[in-house]
Amino acid sequence: MTAYVVQRMLLMLVTLFAIITLTFFLMHAVPGGPFTSEKILQPEIQAALNAKYHLDDPLWLQYLTYLKGVLSFDLGPSFKYAGMSVNQIIAEGLPVTMKTGALALICVVALGVPLGIVAALNRNRWPDTLVMVIATIGVAVPSYVIATVALYVFALRLGWVPTFGLDDWRGYFLPVFALSGFWISFIARLARSSLLETLQQDYMMTARAKGLRRGTVLFKHGLRNSLIPVVTVLGPVVANLLTGSFVIEQIFALPGIGRHFVLSITNRDYTAIMGITIFYAAVLMVMIFIVDMLYLVLDPRIKYRADAK
């Protein structure tokens, strides 16, 4: 167990290193420097800027400097916002993204799983059909379509919620709904099929045959086993909630990291793109790691060994 955790940590470090390297060289492969723009700078200013940001150093030295910076949690200055560091940009956007993301994740689990259970227990009756129809729609319709339609109907037409921003608590409804819509449907479908499969297992019949109450059979024997596939996808769910926030924060004008990321792409703010990518990747890896550990607790059959696989 400990050996497995250590091995996973090492793998995470290797991955992070690969990400930093790849991102760094990808961003430096972009033709033109960060200060290339329509406005032609004086050569002296250009040289001074290059010297200030160490852009006149050889590439390998720049790389080492950057690596050293990342290791000490310093992602460098932003090239487009003078005086802003990438750390500041992230610190500014993080609370917003975390709040909407966490709410969306809660919605996914708190709505998706019960919907799947209801559907599985009422197989081929109207609740099942209803849930499956909603879930199929939710999986097929892209999140930005859900977001814009919801924005038009609930904010512009009905005026129940503000059209942008999070100053009002009602402002959270639409972004969270749009962000979690796909995954609620996905989890509902997954929970349904998984529970249906579990319900047919022999141990379920044994449990009922030995006279356990229906609730106990369902929750202790059925649910716990059928939730394992659901837990495994939670890692990717977190990843997608974060990347999904690019569009959602754009549509609802939320000042989160996703919006900063898209802005830095349109502004070609290379250090910001690089820094936010690395930050995202690190967060995601930690999340996936946590989910895997959760998986370990939930399923006692799985004994991780360092040499497993």
């Binding site: 995470m12 990400i19 961003m27 997608n240 990347t243 792409i265 070609r268 990518t277 990747a281």
Partner: peptide, 19 residues
């Protein structure tokens, strides 16, 4: 493959598009 799959792929599509 394991290393690649822990990288959020959407981010990489975006990076490649930027380049």
């Amino acid at each position: 493959v394991e290393v690649i799959s822990t990288i959020p792929l959407t981010l990489y599509v975006i990076l490649i598009m930027v380049v």
